[in-house]
């Protein structure tokens, strides 16, 4: 075959398969929502999954938030002191964390920590016929397995992002006040005046909620769709990280431009 045709057909194939996957992921998403009532009626299933996605991600979130906050403090100080406004360091740290780094870095870490675990677990359940077995017992795997994990992810993400931002601010404080010597009062008061609850804190929460939906549904879909082999599951896990990360960054841009325009 003509090499140009080969390339073209390759591109076409890629595009159609992507669109197909997007469609079936959306279908899974809708089914998950439809079956949500069942997972809420038996809330313990969701609580169990919050433990595995949320609580288990806590350590990595807290440690990275602390370091991100400290680095922000240091970097911010070196730049701000040139303009003689090193008191604004609190504002810089808080705004950077609340608006961007909190939701985005949390989502990226979540995809790596909890997302991969979800994909691998569901992929293996599929490979070992556990999902089929459930189907044959007249129990919908979407209601019993997918939906509780979905809501656990959606609930955990904003909580983790809030913790990330708070711990990050404390990290920034630790660098700015005791180490560099910025005034304690100025640090907090500047922050207090310039950070708006509605614009910054709530918008950050909305972002992390959207990221929670995206990351969790991607992880669930990749697992649910994985070929039932060892190779299939491992590739699905990799795809979860790549797709989630790119989706989070893309969504972040879209959400930010919406929020800024208002």
């Amino acid at each position: 075959m003509n090499p140009i045709f080969k390339i073209l057909s390759n591109i076409g194939n890629q595009v159609t398969s992507r669109i197909w996957r997007l469609g079936s992921a959306t279908r899974l998403f809708c089914l998950t929502l439809i079956y949500s009532s069942e997972s809420f009626r038996r809330i313990h299933l969701t609580i169990r999954e919050i433990y595995f996605t949320g609580v288990m991600s806590l350590i990595i979130i807290v440690v990275s938030a602390f370091f991100v906050g400290m680095v922000l403090g240091l970097q911010g100080y070196y730049t701000l002191q040139k303009y003689g406004s090193s008191e604004s360091i609190g504002v810089l740290v808080a705004l950077a964390l609340l608006r961007e780094l909190g939701p985005v870095v949390t989502a990226l870490l979540f995809a790596g920590r909890a997302g991969t675990a979800i994909t691998a677990e569901i992929g293996l359940m599929k490979a070992t016929e556990q999902l089929s077995a459930m189907e044959m017992m007249a129990i919908s795997p979407i209601a019993r397995i997918i939906s509780p994990r979905f809501w656990a992810g959606v609930i955990s993400m904003p909580i983790l992002a809030s913790i990330f931002s708070m711990v990050g601010v404390m990290g920034g404080y630790l660098v700015a006040v005791p180490i560099i010597g910025v005034d304690h009062g100025a640090f907090w008061s500047q922050m207090n005046v310039n950070v708006d609850f509605r614009i910054d804190v709530i918008n950050g929460l909305i972002k992390s909620f959207v990221f929670g939906v995206a990351c969790t549904i991607i992880a669930l879909y990749e697992g649910y769709d994985a070929p039932p082999t060892a190779e299939g599951v491992s590739r699905a896990t990799t795809r979860t990280v790549v797709t989630s990360s790119l989706t989070v960054l893309g969504l972040d841009f879209i959400l930010t431009s919406f929020m800024m325009s208002n």
Binding site: A94, I159, S162, S165, M166, W188, F197, V201
Partner: peptide, 10 residues
């Protein structure tokens, strides 16, 4: 953490 962000930071 959210309360802290609302009261102390925001």
């Amino acid at each position: 953490a959210l309360m802290g962000l609302a009261m102390r930071v925001g």
